[in-house]
Design a protein around this nucleic acid. Sequence first.
DNA 1: CGTGGCCTTGATAAAGTTCAAGAGCCGTGG
DNA 2: CCACGGCTCTTGAACTTTATCAAGGCCACG
Lengths: 229, 229
Amino acid sequence: MELISHIAAIHLFKDLPEEHLDNLAMILTDQVFQKRQLIFSEGDEATGFYVVITGRVKIFKLSMDGKEQILHIFGPGAPIGEVAVFEGKRFPANAECLEDSRLFFFPQNAFLKLIKENPSIALHMLAVLSQRLRRFASLIDDLSLKEVPARLAAYLLYLSETQPDLDNLSLDISKGQLSSLLGTVPETLSRILTKMINLGLIRLEGTRGIQILDHKGLEDLAGGETRLH
Amino acid sequence: MELISHIAAIHLFKDLPEEHLDNLAMILTDQVFQKRQLIFSEGDEATGFYVVITGRVKIFKLSMDGKEQILHIFGPGAPIGEVAVFEGKRFPANAECLEDSRLFFFPQNAFLKLIKENPSIALHMLAVLSQRLRRFASLIDDLSLKEVPARLAAYLLYLSETQPDLDNLSLDISKGQLSSLLGTVPETLSRILTKMINLGLIRLEGTRGIQILDHKGLEDLAGGETRLH
DNA sequence: CGTGGCCTTGATAAAGTTCAAGAGCCGTGG
DNA sequence: CCACGGCTCTTGAACTTTATCAAGGCCACG
């Protein structure tokens, strides 16, 4: 069955015996969302959580005047909204699809039951949450102690680590979204990119391509040792 | 035995059978720290985690130029550094005592073994991590989308919820530390307090006392609907 | 080939930080 | 008991960084 192979591919359920995979297949709901479609909103009551199967989803907060801060961008395999399952019962942020996406929904009760029988799932889940706490701690650190150029530089270096061609990056999100991920506005992002270009740190190629010309220079910026001026 | 009663009081171990409490007592190390003493630093290799028994501990990040951002302030019962046990092996931030404190240290391996036998610990731990993720998400939200007056107002209201006398607060940390918790510097905090006083929102009483005169006004500020000016 | 969305650019304003100096508070020791 | 020294906290003024507002440009897609 197709479902099973998807479930087996989810890291959270890696060490699960076959019978439990079947079990999961029974309780989940297979859901398809379109680009821009909202999966849930902050404060919604949660009856379970989701796992991304295909596509990408952004998790974000909104201020009263509509400005958004992106917390995560998740792709295939990542659980979403699981925090509400373990504590609080309400989703702590908004989730929206960046592309047409497919998600599995797991109802709370059945999942909690499964977890009690399978310490391995619990441990995987603890690892996932720990990883996110770590990321959040970094994000807080960055937002509070570093300026935008440093955050952008760090993001470019991060991209360069995760992409095949080390110095020829392709942004996986629009610049508008990137500004929201970095905790700033499009205008500021644009200006800083121009400054980086003028300093010979990077070069833009088309709408989404960015070529890194001076790795070292970006690292200095990301560390906060250098100033962009 | 005194140890056991302390362990039993830790929420994480709430539903544990007596034999397992004894077990924990065998593996833990009882440690005493002085005020200002460092418990661990960011990047240190972790061989286990701590639980605060008495005293208070701050978890914080440092920028190169020495500015700090406080992530948490933990009191009795709170686990510290557990993230490193489940993922990554290194502490993600610094931990320092705000007062003379007593902590129990639990070595990783024994604890992981225990968790595999006790789904209840895993669930409690998942709840703790979930709660922290929620708090972090709020903090990120605040840092990125709200200004300092709103953050301060929110903090004062939070204090007022947790303290006996609703409108007569006593700061539990110095103003310098508070500024670091709010993601700003002492000068700015001081100025905003003065503004709040001039607007009749609060009154200072001695070094650490703060009296709330206009609850509603603070709420408007915290929501971001009102501006301080 | 026009139109709408995204991105860029400029001018202006706001918020917060930094630097420097002074004030208040507290424990210590004479 | 008072004076001293060292804190933390406050206040002022200049400066940075970033946001905001307002156009204008560019590209992509119909």
